[in-house]
């Protein structure tokens, strides 16, 4: 069965019919190719409630580059997995020169396009990113909602201001990485550990 995680390819030198896109489409239901960095960025930001893997080029000419895009994505969320797929290093722009730009931006992987077997590496990397996404809290909530649809509007969390959040609400808060979302995730983790420790629950 194909995966429902979205794959967004932001790259200006990859064609719709290319090997890469075809490979991805064989495994993923939603593969979207966008050749303009700005457009790609907007797409990702407008779909933060989805589970998304981004495959990102670095060099787009003179406008926004891949690092800018990654940085802007990170201003909104750390739950989107980003794999950088860039052409062979140009002199002076090798990965080593750029690596400091990647600090703190949590790129999932960096793959050099054109290297022998890079297409296989890319698929492997995307699959690993998918598993990582599957394991995060927002995804767990979504899975729950899919299986127990009647729970989706029940309030399960109250903020310190007394605001009530349903499962659906809280999932959005987590994906959008709001203060409430981050707070919830933290508390949920401590709660789980606490329950396990006191023997209240078993996994």
């Amino acid at each position: 069965m194909k995966s429902d995680v979205d794959v967004v390819v932001i790259h200006d030198d990859i064609k719709e019919h290319s090997l890469i896109i075809t490979n991805l489409k064989e495994l993923y239901n939603n593969v979207k190719l966008i050749d303009d960095p700005e457009e790609g960025l907007n797409f990702v930001i407008n779909h933060l409630t989805r589970k998304t893997i981004v495959i990102l080029d670095i060099d787009f000419g003179n406008g926004l580059n891949g690092y800018d895009v990654l940085e802007k994505i990170r201003e909104h969320s750390f739950l989107v997995e980003v794999i950088i797929l860039s052409a062979q290093d140009l002199p002076g722009t090798s990965l080593l020169d750029k690596i400091h730009q990647l600090f703190g931006l949590e790129a999932f992987d960096y793959i050099v396009r054109g290297k022998v077997g890079y297409d296989d590496l890319l698929i492997e990397s995307v699959n690993r990113a998918k598993n990582k996404i599957k394991n995060n809290i927002a995804s767990a909530i979504d899975e729950w909602v899919i299986e127990n649809n009647e729970d989706k509007d029940k309030p399960i969390y109250f903020s310190s201001e007394g605001e009530a959040f349903s499962l659906n609400d809280i999932s959005n808060e987590v994906r959008n990485q709001t203060e409430i979302g981050k707070d919830f995730a933290e508390k949920l983790n401590s709660l789980t550990i606490d329950l396990l420790l006191r023997g209240k629950e078993k996994l």
Binding site: L19, A87, Q88, L90, R113, D119
Partner: peptide, 15 residues
């Protein structure tokens, strides 16, 4: 650089 890119595109298509 561009020659490499072209070759890589051609080899992608072949693959």
């Amino acid at each position: 650089h561009v020659v490499r890119t072209s070759i890589s595109n051609i080899s992608d298509s072949a693959k």
